[in-house]
Design a protein around this nucleic acid. Sequence first.
DNA 1: GCAGAATGCGAGTAGTCGCTCGTATTTTTC
DNA 2: GAAAAATACGAGCGACTACTCGCATTCTGC
Lengths: 215, 215
Amino acid sequence: MDSRTEGRPERRQDHRKRQVRGELRIAQILDAAADCFGEVGFTATSTNAIAARAGISPGSLYQFFANKDDIARALAKRYIRLLEAAHGEAFADEVARLPLTEMLDRIVDPIVSFNLANPGFQALLADPGVPSQVSEAKKPLHAVMLVRIDVIFGVRAPQLAPDRRRRGAEVAVGIFAALLRMVLAAGPGERPAMVAELKRAVGGYLGPLVGDGAV
Amino acid sequence: MDSRTEGRPERRQDHRKRQVRGELRIAQILDAAADCFGEVGFTATSTNAIAARAGISPGSLYQFFANKDDIARALAKRYIRLLEAAHGEAFADEVARLPLTEMLDRIVDPIVSFNLANPGFQALLADPGVPSQVSEAKKPLHAVMLVRIDVIFGVRAPQLAPDRRRRGAEVAVGIFAALLRMVLAAGPGERPAMVAELKRAVGGYLGPLVGDGAV
DNA sequence: GCAGAATGCGAGTAGTCGCTCGTATTTTTC
DNA sequence: GAAAAATACGAGCGACTACTCGCATTCTGC
């Protein structure tokens, strides 16, 4: 018998029996990856750099992730969980009935805070060099934003035609994302003013569609 | 004497006496680079790929460009020339006095056309993986947009405080750039509707600052 | 307490990248 | 027509990449 054919447990595909130590390592690796991505972007980050930053060997890294894409995918998943935990969907319906400016405050501020606290998040979303597999992982993140806006439309402008509604949500998210990046890029001094501009811009776009007042 | 010290003409830094053949090659290379950047982005494009696409050897490529960044910089320069030629600054002042929606038509449509015709342009601008040297080359492109908006502010809202004016221009360009990318990403069927949304969004942001009517 | 699984290591593999070098060919200059 | 400059080539260098392999160590279930 060739030792190759039976010696190696043909690469685990499951969390068959992960020890706590392993879960800890995974968290370490994701932390390190988030830092690296935040600093130089996904493409420019080497797997060895992630391993070094996590304080482990390259080999150990591949004990827990199949490849570089897999790390990005896992990180994206974690970000989704974090984002949803940060301010749950539960209040979305209530928030959607507030006056427009108040509503924007309630939605925008936590997301800005989240992005300030997690620089790797934008890096992962913005880098166009990521392989298609990873892009797939980004879609849920985009979707989270879209449903948020869609709930608002559902409450405030239920008469809106479905395709206008969808396009409106896409555009609002697009404006939001672009200005969010500018907020993050701005110095701490400029930041509050940029956040105000962000709200003005999104509010200005959404206003004609959903109305300015409470519903 | 070591042949190294005097044999090689220590790498030309000037167009000392470029032959027409050389200028033609440069154009070929830039065309090839634009295609490649448009398809996979700057970082993912290899210099050998550019050379192959241009139908020349890697060595010949480096006869005309010092390095990969140099190619991107030259391409950015060319784009600036093209963009300014496409619809010269000359009419900016006249356009700035039009009613807002008309003004947007006059500004937005040519830029959308330009970007549809030059896919490499956005790729070069959007890729965050480009080295700082190349980012420097992108700044003039950004500046071109900014002065455009600033001219409009100068004509339509001269009373605006300088920092509000600057921020307004930055934000307007940011919104514009983001939605432009969405326009380009949209299928040909969706495109006109997305262009309309782009104008609504930018107009909605600019309106409160500069007024809706002609001046 | 022991078999086997999970975790850990880090030199090593194959491949790609940007770029160079020696040399050959074409064009300009005189 | 000959010297010199510009253009052209393409194998290949060194650095870096994602990832592997054989093997050592630590933990878990029984």
